[in-house]
């Protein structure tokens, strides 16, 4: 009896659990390294765009700069303001960072390389990205500081507004796929990437992703010129670093989402000889890299939006536009009998 018990314990719980743990590590460790080097890439690219050198002192070509930054932040003192709500003040950066990581559970990085291949993958991603606002709003409130609070209020309004049009963009893609599974969405782009037939939606999604991650030109929550640094003004040391890492991990996540929804995920651009020799993960990373470059490029090019302009763009331009496209796409699919024949 005991033998059978240990057997079921091993085959039923311990072994699968360990396997999942190994998968998680295989995804998280490269992700964290990518986040570290994304900060370096941003500084280098921004420097090149304004004819500067960028970090070039620590290590060859400044390649060890992220580790120097991390070491500096770890050894700084963590300061908690006396008026702050201690528990929430410490929870807020943790929430931001955890949410940026757990979303990767459903992202297929190559064919079959996914930790949880769930049926409602898109909804899960959408849910997690809509939770990102809590890290910011709790940070702003628990700091008990006016700058932080203003930043948090701005950001909650901004993220809720842009989520609406993002939802419509996702619906358009789902109309063409007929499934909420992320792997199925990638497979549906075998013939043509959705970025071509749904090009305007691709642009709307990318701009909404900029707003959702609080990146330039929509970085009003941390507008350093007016709010010093918005919601993170009271944070120091590792708590600040977690916000920072969370923001960059979110950028990679949003690029991954755009890749899966519009750029064909791990699929090569053409299914012919030299392209399909390269493994899918390389294509996936390459597409994410290009999108991240665009993120930084936009930061170097476009000035910050004024707050009312931001709201106008979200509610009066993107929302009607994406709503129209949902109806138009559905109409075309029904009229030409192109609806996916799934179930």
């Amino acid at each position: 009896m005991t033998d059978a018990f240990w057997n079921t314990l091993w085959t039923g719980y311990v072994f699968p659990g360990g396997l999942i743990l190994v998968h998680i590590l295989m995804l998280t460790v490269p992700l964290l390294i990518a986040v570290a080097y994304l900060t370096l890439m941003e500084r280098k690219v921004l420097a090149a765009m304004s004819l500067r050198m960028g970090p070039n002192v620590v290590g060859p070509f400044g390649l060890l700069q992220p580790f120097a930054d991390a070491a500096k932040l770890i050894f700084k003192e963590t300061i908690i303001p006396s008026g702050a709500n201690k528990f929430l003040f410490i929870m807020a950066p943790c929430i931001t960072f955890i949410l940026a990581l757990i979303a990767w559970a459903v992202i297929p990085v190559a064919e079959g390389w996914v930790i949880a291949n769930i049926n409602v993958g898109v909804l899960y991603l959408f849910a997690i990205s809509s939770l990102g606002v809590y890290g910011i709003i709790i940070a702003g409130w628990s700091s008990n500081s006016r700058y932080a609070f203003l930043g948090a209020l701005r950001s909650s309004a901004q993220m809720v507004s842009y989520e609406v049009s993002m939802g419509f963009v996702i619906i358009t893609v789902l109309l063409c796929v007929g499934s909420l599974n992320l792997s199925a969405i990638v497979q549906a782009q075998k013939t043509v990437w959705f970025a071509l037939p749904l090009f305007p939606m691709f642009i709307v999604f990318f701009i909404s992703a900029l707003a959702e991650t609080n990146r330039h030109p929509f970085d009003l929550p941390e507008a350093e010129a007016e709010l010093v640094a918005g919601y993170q003004v009271e944070y120091s040391s590792m708590a600040f670093a977690l916000f920072f890492l969370g923001e960059y991990a979110n950028m990679i996540l949003m690029s991954g989402m755009t890749t899966i929804l519009f750029l064909g995920g791990w699929l090569p651009p053409l299914d012919i000889a030299p392209f399909n020799w390269i493994p899918g993960i390389v294509w996936f990373c390459l597409k994410i890299f290009v999108l991240l470059f665009v993120f930084i490029w936009v930061r170097a090019t476009v000035p910050r939006y004024r707050y009312d302009q931001l709201m106008r763009l979200g509610w009066k331009v993107f929302l009607p536009f994406s709503l129209f496209w949902v109806v138009a796409t559905a109409g075309v699919l029904v009229a030409f009998d192109l609806l996916p024949k799934g179930v």
């Binding site: 409602v120 909804l123 899960y124 959408f126 849910a127 809509s130 939770l131 606002v133 809590y134 709003i137 209020l153 909650s156 309004a157 809720v160 989520e163």
Partner: peptide, 18 residues
């Protein structure tokens, strides 16, 4: 489950908190 998180936690509760 996912809709509950998206609608209630992601939108309604944010407005409450706001």
């Amino acid at each position: 489950g996912m809709i509950l998180v998206i609608v209630y936690v992601g939108a309604v509760a944010v407005l409450f908190l706001f």
